[in-house]
Write a protein that binds this DNA or RNA. Structure first.
Lengths: 205, 205
DNA sequence: AAACTTCCCAACAGTCTTGACTGTTTGTTC
DNA sequence: GAACAAACAGTCAAGACTGTTGGGAAGTTT
């Protein structure tokens, strides 16, 4: 009766689920234990996956981590686009855009990405995987920010101001990892929004 | 003269030299191999110190790293003050201050500090040592920046602008660790110098 | 000079991590 | 429905790292 069993779980689906569970667990471990604390045994335990199954899907730790990097960059892009869709328009638009960016750069996915950046600095294999993907995410974020702010990138200085804004929120995100101070962050963004708005307006009359 | 007097080195001096060598080697390892790659054996090899001697001065790895954190914070403060003394005055002062800060936040000492920050996030013992010292360095840096810019911190928004500037260079420093782009950094600082100068002038008439 | 402290050295035990290995179950194909 | 391939499970060995132990050398004090 082989022809009357169409609803069994196909291989492809099982593989997909298994890999997704492992990658999700990897990101969680990165956030909770850091890169050095993310051992393969810990990941498999957390994912509820046997060690053998893990080694089957990801033969080495590098393979697992590189796949996690790709997974994470996709998640980051998705989250950004989703958050951008819920932004208000009008007077406080700029401040809202900054708030969205700051939220992203203080979220767990950013923390995980930070662990990977720092680890990649001294790990050539990891750097090869992280660098191009990070560049892609960075470009996408820049493009999105320009669009959300309605800035004219052809005007001189505008491109640099947007980059400065992104580097600022990156710095805020870094500071947040060891000393969480949301009030301080909020005041800084208030001030930055005013300055940025004025500068952009002045550069695109 | 006595029969055996090849080189009488007092204890105090020996320990001082030994500890300094070990701390210096620790920072170097942090920069080259990252925190996870900084093993105690590697440090002792690099310092040209036997493992036994290392264990004598720093019984545990934590003790070594904590001492390195303190050492590093002192070095950072010294470097900042020294660089500040060589700044020009006049028209391009603000840009020069930003350049000095950016240089500091892309230097090896910053790289080492970054490794410690990230590691401290998931290591309570290390966090206890890093957090207060980082706060001290941060405050000192802020104070110095306000002074160098000649800003009036009592004026509303000025404090936030200085903090934003420091977070910006921190973000630039983070970006620099994986993709070194000095030209991009320079253009951003050019633009921000103009905006910051205008904003500060406007807020302190 | 002798007792005493500090400093230094080398070998070792215990723990953790990675990836290799053997065996079992499940799905696919002929 | 039988052969085959993929997915899954659990154990094992090699290597690395940390911190301990016991002994010996150099410096200090009385």
């Amino acid at each position: 009766m082989s022809s009357t069993a169409p609803a069994r779980v196909p291989q492809e689906e099982r593989t997909r689920v298994m890999r997704a569970r492992l990658l999700e667990a990897t990101v969680e471990c990165l956030v909770e234990r850091g890169f050095a604390g993310t051992s393969t045994t810990l990941v498999s335990q957390r994912a509820g996956v046997s060690r053998g199954a893990q080694l089957h899907h990801f033969p080495t730790k590098d393979a697992l981590v590189v796949a996690a990097v790709e997974h994470l960059s996709e998640v980051r892009c998705r989250e950004l686009v989703a958050a951008a869709a819920a932004l208000p328009t009008g007077e406080r638009r700029t401040r809202a855009v900054l708030g969205m960016l700051a939220d992203h750069f203080t979220s767990p996915v950013f923390t995980a990405a930070l662990e990977l950046w720092v680890a990649a600095r001294t790990d050539p294999g990891l750097l090869g995987a992280v660098a191009p993907l990070e560049q892609r995410v960075g470009r996408e974020t820049h493009r999105l920010t320009v669009e959300l702010l309605g800035a004219d990138e052809l005007a001189p200085g505008v491109r640099e101001l947007v980059q400065a804004t992104l580097d600022l929120v990156r710095g805020l995100g870094l500071a947040d990892t060891i000393t969480d101070d949301a009030r301080r962050r909020s005041r800084i963004l208030d001030e930055w929004a005013g300055v940025l708005d004025a500068a952009l307006k002045e550069r695109a009359p």
